[in-house]
Amino acid sequence: MDLHFLGTGAGMPSKTRNTSALIVNLTAEGRGYWLFDCGEATQHQILHTSLKPRKIEKIFITHLHGDHLFGLPGLISSRSFLGGNEPLDIYGPAGLSTWLWSTLQLTNTHLNYELCIHEIAEEGIVIEDEDFLVRVKKLEHVIPCFGYRIEQKPLAGKLLIEKALAAGVPKGPLLKNLKEGQDVTLADGQVVLSEDVTGEPQQGFTIAILGDTKYCDASVELAEEADIVVHEATFDNETGNLAKDYGHSTIGDAAKVAKNANASALIANHISARFLPSDIAKLKKQGQETFENIYIAEDFACFEWRDGKLNEVKNTE
């Protein structure tokens, strides 16, 4: 799983940060891309990467402020031109459907795929299938805003191939079946149980992606024991009063959420344009006074999750 930050600014674009957009790349898990928020010019940001808009299969909008969704009509329109024919699911607060459909109809935008808009009516589970579970909770912003918790369900244990071969299983599709948790019957009638030739199930990852919010209990609950928490840090600790006035968080608030949730890593984003690149080290240091394992995301930053570890691996620009 990879995280690609396409926009990490707050309120409006700046020379160094675009408005909010984050892609969770699940192709290694047999899925496509899940996009969280879609600020203005998100599709322009994608042009500077190797990411393919047609692979976006789900979009999650945290709230209806423009810096989190003004890029949506253009992106979903371009997806048609770029070979995206598979259905697209969009999740978000009440009012999203009216705004988006009105925009598409008034501009006579034609889509080559099925667009399914799911307005979230209450907290709880919005997606559950055999591999993933997505929960939402209401955060504390100046308009209704959601945070999302993405849980990958436990993975099948590794196939102990030498043990399987010793049990008489021939090389080929039966090994694949055993790896996927299915018992198999050999040509001589012997049944080989998957649990006998596979290791213990492996824990999946958990990510909390939080929209704009003040420090609140809901953020901590969504982030509980998470491997990765993506949290806004619009202000530094010296401008905490402004954060409260505008329904936002300081870097200290974000760090407090990660600490109180016993999370493993924090990636701070939604950084105010008042902070120049030269200020980022100070911002990070303020957060580390509360929670050590902090990253400050920049536009086009990419983070890789492999074998239970998070690494900032490259710039996707």
Results as ranks from 00 to 15, higher is better:
T185I: 12
L88A: 02
Q286R: 05
V126N: 03
F146T: 00
Q182S: 09
N260F: 06
T107D: 10
D196C: 01
P144F: 09
A208M: 07
S278L: 11
L26Q: 06
K138A: 10
G71M: 03
D129K: 08
L159M: 11
F275E: 00
N315W: 06
Q286P: 05
L139A: 08
A281S: 12
F60A: 07
T185G: 00
R79H: 08
V134T: 10
G287C: 07
L64I: 07
V126E: 03
D245T: 12
L310A: 04
S102Y: 09
T198E: 01
G252Y: 02
I294H: 05
H110F: 09
L35I: 06
I161D: 00
I59C: 07
T16K: 09
A223C: 14
S249V: 03
I117K: 03
E225P: 00
F303G: 00
P170I: 01
F146W: 15
L100H: 05
E86F: 03
L22R: 04
E232N: 14
I207N: 02
Y148Q: 10
A243C: 09
L6K: 00
T49Y: 07
I61D: 02
D227A: 04
N18H: 10
K314F: 14
P277I: 08
E180C: 05
Y246R: 08
A166S: 13
K285M: 10
G204W: 02
E114H: 07
S272V: 01
L165N: 00
F81H: 13
W305L: 14
V184C: 07
G211L: 04
P144Q: 11
L276S: 11
A273Y: 05
H65F: 11
K52Q: 15
M1P: 13
E57S: 13
F303D: 00
T62Q: 11
K285T: 12
I143N: 10
H68E: 12
D131Y: 09
